[in-house]
Every structure is written in structure tokens, then in C-alpha cells.
């Protein structure tokens, strides 16, 4: 059984946006990691992870984001996360990751912050 996840990496307003759509779990987290690796390879400005289209994320997906943040810090780059879905925001809250990540409710403020 193949799970669907869509990852899009694009440049916008001087930032590199990694947009995910679908469920992020142990099966699909590698695709998100690949997208983030591509974004970090671009070496263009802030990395914005847009989770607006994500309907599920577990600790595997969160671990990928933590790893990407670590690489951004090492490279002197900023990483921001866009979370619109309350269910997804709840996962960040109960794990304490709202303290680690800069989270925005939509893409525009994340790009303009």
C-alpha cells in the first residue's frame, strides 16, 4: 500500500518554501526529509516549511523537522513552520515544539516575518 504525500520545493520572495500535503508518518517522512534536504541545498534564504496541507504528523515527521532545524542553525539560516490545522498545531503544542519552532498560521506572514 502506497501512501500519498506531495512535497513541493520552490523559491518565493527570497525564501525556500517546502510545502507538504498529506499524512506524514514513518512511511512518508523520508519524502519530507528529501524535500528539506533539497531546500537546504538551494542555499537560498529562510526555509519555510508549509504544513497547511498536512492532515497528520507523528513523531517521525517531527523528528525530520527537528533535524532540518538543526542543519539550518548550523548553516546560519532561519527555519519557519506554517501550521493552519488545529490538529497539527496541537501535536506541536503537546510536544513542546512551539518553543523550538517559529510557527505561523499562514504562508504570507511566514515569508514576511
Amino acid at each position: 500500500m502506497e501512501q500519498d504525500i506531495e512535497i513541493e520545493v520552490r523559491n518565493r520572495d527570497g525564501s525556500t518554501v517546502v510545502a507538504a500535503r498529506g499524512e506524514v508518518d514513518v512511511a512518508t517522512a523520508p519524502a519530507l526529509r528529501d524535500g528539506l534536504d533539497e531546500a537546504l541545498d538551494h542555499d537560498i534564504g529562510t526555509v519555510v516549511v508549509d504544513l497547511t496541507g498536512v492532515t497528520f504528523i507523528d513523531s517521525t515527521g517531527l523528528g525530520v523537522l527537528i533535524g532540518a532545524r538543526r542543519r539550518c542553525v548550523e548553516a546560519g539560516r532561519d527555519l519557519r513552520v506554517v501550521v493552519a490545522e488545529p490538529r497539527i498545531l496541537k501535536v506541536f503544542e503537546i510536544t513542546g515544539l512551539t518553543e523550538l519552532f517559529t510557527i505561523h498560521p499562514s504562508l504570507e506572514p511566514a515569508l514576511g516575518a
Binding site: 507523528d58 513523531s59 517521525t60 517531527l62 523528528g63 527537528i66 533535524g67 501535536v91 503537546i94 510536544t95 513542546g96 515544539l97
Partner: peptide
């Protein structure tokens, strides 16, 4: 390599 995930998993289960 699962240190982050293991800790997060515990926090999630504790909360839910």
C-alpha cells in the same frame, strides 16, 4: 538516531 522521536513519542502518549 531515534532519540528525538522517542522523546517526542513519550510526550505525545503522555498527553493523549
Amino acid at each position: 538516531g531515534l532519540d528525538d522521536e522517542g522523546d517526542l513519542s513519550e510526550r505525545i502518549l503522555d498527553a493523549l
